[in-house]
Design a binder for these strands. Sequence first.
DNA 1: CAGTGGTCTAGACCACCCA
DNA 2: GGGTGGTCTAGACCACTGA
Lengths: 236, 236
Amino acid sequence: MLKYQQIATEIEKYIEDNKLQQGNKLPVLETLMAQFAASKSTITKALDLLEKKGVVYQVRGSGIFVRRHKRKGYISLLSNQGFKKELEGFHITSEVIELDVRKPTEEAAYNLNMNVEDDVYYVKRVQYMNKKTLCLEESFYNKSIITYLNNEIVSDSIFKYINEGLGLKVGFSDMFLQVNKINEEEAKYLGLETGAPGLYIETIYHLTNGQSFDFSKLTYNYEQSQFFIQANSHFL
Amino acid sequence: MLKYQQIATEIEKYIEDNKLQQGNKLPVLETLMAQFAASKSTITKALDLLEKKGVVYQVRGSGIFVRRHKRKGYISLLSNQGFKKELEGFHITSEVIELDVRKPTEEAAYNLNMNVEDDVYYVKRVQYMNKKTLCLEESFYNKSIITYLNNEIVSDSIFKYINEGLGLKVGFSDMFLQVNKINEEEAKYLGLETGAPGLYIETIYHLTNGQSFDFSKLTYNYEQSQFFIQANSHFL
DNA sequence: CAGTGGTCTAGACCACCCA
DNA sequence: GGGTGGTCTAGACCACTGA
C-alpha cells in the first residue's frame, strides 16, 4: 500500500476511534508530517484523498476539519459499487433469477462498446436489504473481460469477485438516473403495485484502463431507496 | 487564476475545440510540461482536477484519455449547484412564490446548525426548464451569512449572486435523495396528479470554511428529471 | 525494455484566517 | 503578524503497459 493511502487510512481511523464530529479540527500539517515521517506533499495528498471521499475539508489559513454529516438509513449512492454497502451496516442479499451467456441487446452493446455478435454474461437478480426488496437488477458483463461467472459468485458480491478473483481494478463509472412508474414485471419482483414510483438507474462501469465491462440497469423499490451523495465544488 | 487551474481550463478547451471523443489520447506529460512551461507536479495537479470533474482518466504506463460518456438531455446532478445548468444548454427560469425573512423550522435550524430564534431567508420557487416545470424548491438561507436577498436576485440565479454579489465561495454540499409519491401541493405546482412519482432531494450547502448557509428541499417533476453522475473509485 | 504515468522529497514562496 | 494551508519547482526513483 502506498504511503499516502496508508496515511489516509490511519487518519480516517483516528477520526473514527476518537469519534470526532463535524467541524472538529485535526492536527496541523507540521504535526502530521512529523507523526507520519512524510513530506508536506505526501500529507497533502493523503488529505486530498480524504477530501474527495468526503471525510474532511481543508480551510486555508485555518485548519483541517472533519466532515461527517451523514444520516442514518441513507446509502451512499457513489460508494454503492458492488460490495461497499455491507460496510455501512446494511445487510444485502441477492436472489438470482437468470444467469446465462448470450448476445447483448443493441443498447447493452452500445454502452459496453462491443459488437452485438460478442458474448456477454447476463445476470438478473433481486437484491434484498434487511430482508426487504431493495431493487431489481439486470446486468450485462463483457465476457471477454469477465471471463467466468457462476451462480455462487452471482449470489454473493460480483464486484468482490472481479477485484479479488479476477484481479481487475474498477476505475470509474457513469450513472444515469430517472424516476418512473414501474411496470408489471418490476412490480412483481419488488412486491409493489404496477405504476408505483421507481428509481431507475443505469450504470456503466469501467476498469482503470477505461474499458467498460459492466452495463447494469437497476430499479429501486422507492420505499427502501434513501441515498446520500457528498459533492465538492471543483465545479465552480 | 492559479497556474494548474489555468492549465486545466486550457486542456479542457483543447478537448472541446478538437472535439475529442471518449478514449482519445492526450499529449504525454512531457509535452504538456513543455507546452505550459510547468513542472510535472503542476501538470499532474491540473490533470487530477480534470479527473475529478470526469473529463479525463489517467492510465499509468499508457497515457491520458478523454472521458465523455454523457447522454443528451441528462442534467449533471452534482454540478447542479445553482447556475451550472445554464452552461449545459438547458434554459432554466424561476417563478418566485414566496420570499420573506422568518424563523427556521426545527428541521432547517438543525441542518443549518443555527438556533430557531435566528433569522433565515425563506424562498419558495418553481423552476422551469425549456418551459416545462422542472421542480418545486423550498430553501432556507442563514441570514447572518446571506445578509440580503430580493425578488430580482431570487428570480435569477441565487448562487451566482452569492458568488459574485456577496463574494462567498461555496465549498461542498451534502445531498439526500428519495423517491416518493408527491402530495397535493407539489402536484399543483408541478402540473401533475397527486400520487405521481417524485424525486425528492434535500441539500445542505457549505461555504469553503465549512459553514452551512443553505438548506434546500426540492421535488422534481419525474417527467423532466434525468440526471447523470460521474463517479471515481477512490472508494475501493 | 522503452515509454509513460505515479510517488515522494525538500524547500522556497504565496495566500488566507484570525486575534 | 503569527499560524496555517496551498502552490510550484527540480529531480530521484518506482510501477505499470504494450510492442
